[in-house]
Simulated assay, not measured.
Amino acid sequence: MAAQAPGRVILLNGPSSSGKTSIGQAMLPLLPDPWFLVPVDSISGMRSTKHNRALGDAKTQEMLRRTRRGYHRVIAALASAGNDVIMDYPLSEPWRLADLLDVLDGYDVTLVDVRCSAEELDRRERLRCDRPRGLAASQTGVYAHRDNDLVVDTTRRTAADCAREIVDRFATISRPKAFARLRRDRPVAAVRTLDADQHNARRSQT
């Protein structure tokens, strides 16, 4: 049997309330079946949430980091089996991108920055009840990588319009893509830091 070609990955990156999930949902009927929309919230939502479990700040941050590292590897596992995947995920911490550059090395990744004005983000946060106020404003590093394959802006455009633009332009994106450029150009020090983090993580599990 011929080896299975890996699936493609579209990463929708942007702050909370920028419209990533709505765009991903609108993309699914426009793409040839099957594509999987896998938001990071779907992985976080599987975690137990007992209100009487007090982890403390340090342990909570450690738990969240493990969750996100696991999410990266779920995406890689799906793509390795030939599945096409849409990620709904903010690159709000430098280590997230650094880890993804390693975990998704060898995969066709399209990085889409989803932008929205600060005023509109604040308005959306006030309307929804499932996000703390100021979350989007706190995610200042979400575009720190300064590279992408596509940019859409939901300030005045609908999720459907943005989804159509992404799907229409998807096949014509020039190579090397943003992930390949970022992997090529990242400082050696960043690679060493990531290697050390991974080593420490393995030690903590033994």
Rank of each mutant, 00 (worst) to 15 (best):
N83M: 13
T110N: 07
L28W: 01
Y107A: 09
L101Q: 13
Q25K: 14
L31I: 09
P34W: 06
L30N: 05
P32V: 05
D105V: 08
G70R: 07
G70I: 00
D105H: 15
L100R: 12
D113I: 04
L97Y: 08
S22Q: 15
V85I: 15
A58W: 01
H72Q: 14
P34E: 08
H51Y: 06
V40Q: 11
V114G: 03
G19W: 05
T21M: 14
L55W: 05
L101C: 14
M27E: 04
G24S: 13
R65G: 06
S16P: 00
R73I: 04
S92H: 01
H51M: 10
A77H: 12
V103C: 10
R73W: 03
M63L: 13
L91W: 01
V112A: 09
G45E: 03
K20N: 10
S44V: 12
L30F: 03
S48G: 08
A58C: 01
G45H: 03
L64N: 11
A79C: 08
V85L: 09
A26D: 05
L37P: 05
R68W: 07
N52W: 13
A98F: 09
F36T: 15
S18P: 04
M63W: 10
S22H: 12
K59D: 13
D57F: 06
G45Y: 02
D99K: 05
G70Y: 10
T60L: 14
S117I: 01
A54E: 05
E120Y: 01
L78H: 12
M63Y: 10
L37H: 13
L31N: 11
R65P: 04
S18C: 15
M27K: 05
R65S: 13
L28Q: 04
M46S: 11
L111H: 09
Y71G: 06
A26S: 15
E62P: 02
L78I: 14
V112E: 09
D108F: 04
N83V: 15
V114M: 04
D88E: 12
F36H: 10
D57N: 07
L55G: 00
L55N: 01
I23N: 00
L104E: 09
R68A: 11
F36L: 14
L28C: 03
S22C: 09
A98M: 14
R69D: 14
L97M: 15
M87F: 09
Y107C: 08
D41P: 03
Y89H: 15
V38W: 11
G56W: 00
D108M: 05
L31E: 09
H51N: 08
A77P: 00
V40K: 10
Y89M: 09
I43P: 03
L104V: 05
A76F: 03
I23K: 01
S22R: 12
G24A: 15
D33L: 12
A79S: 14
S92C: 03
V40G: 00
D88F: 01
D57T: 05
P39F: 07
I86C: 03
G24Q: 11
M63N: 08
Y107I: 11
A26M: 03
Y89R: 05
D41Q: 05
P32E: 06
M46A: 13
A77Q: 14
K50F: 06
D88G: 04
G82Y: 08
D113A: 10
K59L: 12
V40W: 00
R65C: 11
Y107D: 07
V74E: 01
